[in-house]
Design a protein around this nucleic acid. Structure first.
Length: 343
DNA sequence: AACAAGACCAACCGCAAAGCC
DNA sequence: TGGCTTTGCGGTTGGTCTTGT
């Protein structure tokens, strides 16, 4: 399989995006919806490669992205999920619907790795592995990451099968889908025409309005500009969106779902989470539905794992490690759980 | 006030796999 | 069925900001 040309290096702009470029991109996506990135530079006149456009959208411009400090709650989730899944940031991000994989990756590399390393050196005198991972990460490596992936994939396969068998029910059984019109809840990537429907359009209108506001009061420097500008995507979405998995199977991905399912004690995070949650509407959920970086099928839709299962898995994982369970037990447990959970 | 070092994060790069014809 | 194209992911880089001296 040959490596395709990413983009024509001649005449392709690199580096930070300007607000003007953002406007063009947002406007285009407003009209056509995300996807078909190849055609975006051509159709918009942006001197960017398709990859850059996609990245800019998914990591920065799409609504529903929560920026700023990670809460205690999120931090713990990342630590647990990293221990469970390894550096599969997209998979981890699928459990934190408001965060991008890039954000999580950066946070891990800049904060958590150091934090865990510090804890590690404090507790056992510096017996770190090369990556400075925590003891939980070491548990992961002890068990073998391939086993974890296998377990995860088993869950995904079961979930996918379950979904396939009950596809006709999802539009009515999933709370998330109650927010969607019948054709929108069809559990498929949205076509460009879908984006002309109300949820996306109205959301994009919000973006446009904010863009206009920004145009009226252009900040003098790009950073401020970008902050205010790009925050508006979030701002417009802030009023919105419980997070719906595109398959409609994971209603628990709403922050409420996380709060209830992941019972980490995090007083400060509760406030911010509930605030965000309260403001979310169906608009962004639909947006996120499409634009949240999805796990491609080679990662078997990790976001489809029911969180109750994941939670149990996470905690059982630690418990099992302490009790000296071997890998077979862990896998069996997972299979049993998934059997109970799915069938 | 000026400089250096470290921290942070947006963006890029290259690879792998899915999708399409 | 095989090759090409497109998309997504994880690792890494480099510019900017912050903090310390």
């Amino acid at each position: 399989m040959g490596r395709p040309p990413c983009c024509d290096k001649i005449g392709v702009k690199k580096g930070p995006w300007t607000p003007e470029e953002d406007i063009i991109l947002v406007s285009y996506i407003q009209e056509h919806g995300p996807g078909n990135w190849r055609s975006v530079p051509t159709n918009t006149g942006l001197l960017r490669c398709s990859k850059s456009c996609r990245l800019r959208w998914t990591n920065y411009l799409r609504p529903g992205i929560k920026r700023g400090n990670f809460t205690d709650h999120e931090e713990k989730m990342i630590i647990h999920l990293q221990a469970l899944l390894g550096n599969r940031w997209a998979a981890i991000a699928s459990y934190l619907p408001q965060r991008t994989d890039n954000d999580i990756k950066n946070y891990w590399n800049t904060h958590l790795k150091k934090k865990l390393k510090k804890l590690q050196t404090g507790s056992d005198g510096g017996q770190n592995n090369q990556d400075g991972f925590s003891s939980t990460s070491q548990q992961a490596s002890n068990k073998g990451q391939w086993e974890r992936r296998l377990q995860t994939d088993i869950h995904m396969a079961k979930q996918a099968l379950c979904e396939a068998l009950s596809l006709d029910k999802t539009s009515t059984t999933s709370p998330a889908n109650l927010l969607l019109s019948p054709d929108q809840s069809n559990l498929k990537p949205m076509s460009s025409t879908t984006y002309n429907n109300t949820p996306y359009a109205s959301n994009a209108e919000n973006i446009s309005r904010l863009l206009q506001n920004w145009m009226k009061n252009p900040p003098k420097i790009s950073e401020t500009t970008q902050d205010s500008f790009t925050n508006m995507a979030y701002a417009s979405a802030a009023g919105s969106g419980s997070n719906i998995s595109s398959e409609g199977a994971l209603s628990a991905t709403t922050p409420e779902g996380f709060d209830s399912l992941f019972s980490f004690n995090s007083s400060n995070s509760d406030a911010s989470q509930s605030e965000t949650t309260a403001n979310l509407t169906s608009e962004t959920s639909l947006f996120q539905d499409e634009s949240k970086p999805k796990l491609d099928s080679r990662h078997h839709h990790h976001h489809q794992v029911p969180l109750t299962l994941l939670e149990k898995w996470l905690f059982d994982d630690v418990a099992a490690a302490h009790q000296g369970h071997d890998d077979d037990d862990l896998i069996n447990m997972s299979l049993e759980d998934s059997t109970v959970g799915f069938f």
